[in-house]
Write a protein that binds this DNA or RNA. Structure first.
Length: 722
RNA sequence: CCGCCUGUAGCUCAGCGGGAAAGAGCAACGGACUUCUAAUCCGUAGGUCAGUGGUUCGAGUCCACUCAGGCGGGCCA
């Protein structure tokens, strides 16, 4: 990282000069000035020092300039304006250094970091809101990897929750005509409908993504169930029955047996056997999960581990966490009042929660079941390696391979079902050892969860703290982001194309945005939207061809462009603003969009292609780079070089603030600089050998950098052509 | 009632440990394709950075208050 190095050396030089000249010690940081005529690095520190040292700021800057031992690589230093110290770098030198460095060279490294993201309830198809979570989480993972931090990616599966139970209730108890309608089949007896439902489960480990999958089927069933809960209070009792069965677990009952038992119960008119119901719930969760993996694979998003909530329960993780909380007095059972019979964690002692009217959070309900927050505490402790049994050993899951995936490059394509990396799920059998070993026990943990869950996330963190792990609590970060909502125009469009009526009030439709709701079936499914994006990209490619013939890899190109558009859309908006989804805006491929970035990479690659073809020249290698010494690099070329050098700084800042709009902005600026140069600095037609070499050198640095930024960092694939 | 977030061009948004002249894109208008592909580029126009007060050599950025909108404060997650 040549730029980081010279930046640090200049800062050191200034700090040393300040100390010897004025006896002043200070941590200082150099900025990159807004315009190149103001230099490449700047120190504004003389201004605030003026008061302390009782001297004019310009005078201080002059002193520092004269006294500092400027490192090699600094061409000249000036005092400017009211007292800025502007540093100009040796341009050809930095360019040569960049050419000598491997593009993906890492940084600091560090201890293992766990990122938990996606976490979609496995009871229906993913919608575009889930994509925001997954894309932000994935970019965090990629950013950490660019900084050479070892990362483990976990996708938590809430397979024993209410939402999965609701779909099971639908299959077992929704009136036959409604269930048949949701399934899209003729009305028949329930046992046949149950079979039809089970037949729709994915056959493969991870199926090819589509909008007619098992998760889409559940998408139809779920809102019908929630609607019936409201209409028929007795129906809600069914949910409790199912939840109770799920909690007991399926035992040894497998899918075939479950099907047999459920059919038998229908025919005999008897209650459903609990183990069969639990098995059905498990199949629903796993079936949806497999579909979600397929959806995320379209975006190049992969995981290392799928921790299941059922395993946290069955392996007694919660029991152990509960004992730990009791042992340190963090929880107590309420004997009276509104929380009578519940185990609560008191937050009164924590200043963070001082403002709450009711500073208690229920972890165990009066009926003895654990809340989600309770289970999350156990999970968080495990992630941090702090869940320790009475024998002093770390509690751990059993593990089993869930699917295999492969990805030839850093971005697309990601394929499941091929030899490659194992995606592992947890199991309740600790005899099943981890295939790769060593999951969990991260030194730092990020939970990518939407902002509405800030309160329970604070509770989880506080639990870690009161258990005596203040440092671990501080290393636990809730990566909060705002929801994705729909513009009224988008809702109307969905109503038109789907034929569904959401019956929203005029007041709702008058708002700036409308919240999506899986419960009501209001939303844009992820696969649906990706399909629309891909076909729009195909249209754009074809229309730009004129009447030119066929494109061999049309589908691949369209896929890359669709993914680029979507990922950039998610990255460029800062995380704490509601993303109001609008089709017209999301389908734009021009301007400040993913394809704009991709096009810069494609154009750059094309230059080298033509260069090889017409002049037999290629990239500028280290040997040829030596010829660049003393080259006159104009401001425009230099801007691009400098921007290419700033990756580490930008990524580190983005991770520190969890703000990826900074990354988006950085890559956009870089692409913009390139597109401008493209017009004014031709390479192939340039006959001057020296000038051509310089441009080749700058574009060599650019091609490498834009590839890292798009593919490695943002997960945006670069198409062959556009 | 309390807490958090948001308010920047007609629209959608950047602007991040205060720093040099407020930036993109879309929409509007005018220009550039026999060229390394125009998903691009150049130009014009468009702003009391919600408001008021404060801190500072310097505030869109920090502090206080006000206004407007959103989200939380569940034995849902």
């Amino acid at each position: 990282m040549p730029f980081l190095e010279i930046r640090t050396r200049c800062a050191d030089a200034i700090a040393t000069a300040l100390e010897t000249e004025f006896g002043h010690r200070a941590e200082l940081r150099l900025e990159v000035p807004p315009r190149r005529e103001l230099g490449d690095l700047a120190w504004p520190g003389a201004l605030p020092l003026a008061k302390v040292l009782r001297r004019a700021p310009r005078e201080i800057a002059e002193w520092v300039l004269a006294a500092a031992a400027w490192p090699e690589g600094v061409q000249r230093v000036e005092v400017a304006g009211p007292g800025f110290l502007n540093i100009f770098l040796d341009r050809p030198r930095l360019l040569r250094q960049l050419l000598a460095h491997a593009p993906a060279e890492g940084g600091a490294g560090g201890p293992k970091t766990i990122v938990e993201h996606t976490n979609i309830n496995p009871n229906k198809a993913a919608h575009i809101g889930h994509l925001r979570n997954a894309v932000l989480g994935d970019i965090l993972v990629r950013s950490l990897r660019v900084l050479a931090v070892p990362v483990e990616v976990q996708n938590y599966i809430d397979d024993t929750g209410v939402q999965v139970a609701d779909v099971v209730v639908g299959v077992l108890h929704l009136p036959e005509p409604e269930l048949a309608a949701a399934l899209g089949v003729e009305i028949s007896r329930r046992d046949e409908l149950v079979v039809t439902f089970l037949e729709r489960l994915p056959g493969a480990e991870v199926p090819a993504a589509s909008t007619r999958d098992f998760d889409d089927l559940c998408w139809e069933i779920y809102p019908r169930v929630t609607a019936r809960y409201e209409a028929d209070p007795d129906f809600a009792a069914r949910r409790d029955e199912v939840l109770h069965a799920v909690e007991g677990g399926p035992g040894q009952v497998d899918r075939d047996q479950a099907e047999f038992l459920l059919r038998g119960a229908v025919i005999a008119g008897e209650p459903y056997p609990e183990r069969a119901v639990a098995c059905l719930a498990g199949e629903v969760a796993t079936g949806n999960l497999r579909c979600h993996l397929a959806t995320m694979a379209r975006l190049g998003i992969a995981y290392d581990l799928l921790p299941h909530e059922s395993d946290i329960l069955h392996l007694g993780f919660w029991r152990q966490a509960f004992e730990m909380l009791k042992a340190c007095g963090a929880v107590r059972i309420e004997s009276e009042g509104k929380n009578a019979g519940c185990w609560v964690m008191s937050l009164a002692a924590s200043p963070e929660f001082a403002d709450l009217d009711d500073p208690d959070k229920i972890l165990v309900r009066s009926n003895g079941t654990v809340t989600y927050t309770g289970k999350d505490i156990a999970y968080q402790l495990w992630k941090l390696g702090l869940l320790v049994g009475p024998d002093g050993r770390r509690l751990d899951f059993g593990y089993r391979s869930f699917a295999r995936w492969t990805r030839p490059g850093p971005a697309l394509p990601l394929r499941y079902g091929e030899e490659g990396t194992a995606l592992v799920r947890t199991t309740s059998d600790q005899a099943e050892a981890s295939p790769s070993g060593g999951f969990g026990a991260g030194a730092r943990v990020y939970n990518v969860i939407d902002v509405r869950q800030s309160y329970p996330q604070r509770v989880v963190k506080e639990a870690v703290r009161v258990l005596g792990h203040a440092e671990a609590a501080d290393s636990s970060t809730h990566f909060a982001y705002e929801m994705v909502a729909l513009t009224p125009a988008a809702v109307r469009l969905i109503e038109q194309s789907s034929g569904h009526r959401f019956d929203l009030s005029d007041e709702d439709m008058g708002k700036a945005y409308i919240e999506m709701s899986g419960r009501r079936g209001i939303g844009v499914k992820a696969d649906e939207f990706l399909d629309v994006l891909e076909s729009a990209a195909e249209d754009a490619i074809v229309s730009r061809l004129g009447h030119g013939g066929e494109v061999a890899d049309l589908a691949d190109r369209a896929r890359a462009i669709a993914v680029g558009a979507l990922r950039y859309l998610m990255a460029r908006q800062s995380r704490n603003r509601v993303l109001a989804f609008d089709f017209a805006e999301a389908l734009a491929f021009e301007g400040d969009t993913g394809p704009y970035l991709q096009y810069s990479a494609v154009r750059a690659a094309k230059i080298f292609e033509k260069l090889a073809e017409r002049r037999g020249e290629g990239r500028v290698d280290v040997d040829e780079a030596a010829l660049l010494e003393g080259a006159a690099i104009d401001d425009e070329l230099w801007d691009l070089v400098l921007q290419c050098a700033r990756r580490h700084e930008v990524v580190a800042q983005a991770v520190a603030g969890l703000e990826f709009s900074l990354l988006a902005q950085h890559v956009h600026d870089l692409a913009q600089l390139f597109h401008k140069l493209y017009h004014g600095h031709p390479v192939v037609p340039e006959d001057d050998v020296e000038l051509r070499r310089l441009r080749r050198a700058v574009f060599t640095v650019f091609v490498d950098e834009i590839r890292v930024l798009l593919e490695d960092l943002l997960g945006i694939p670069i198409p062959t052509e556009m």
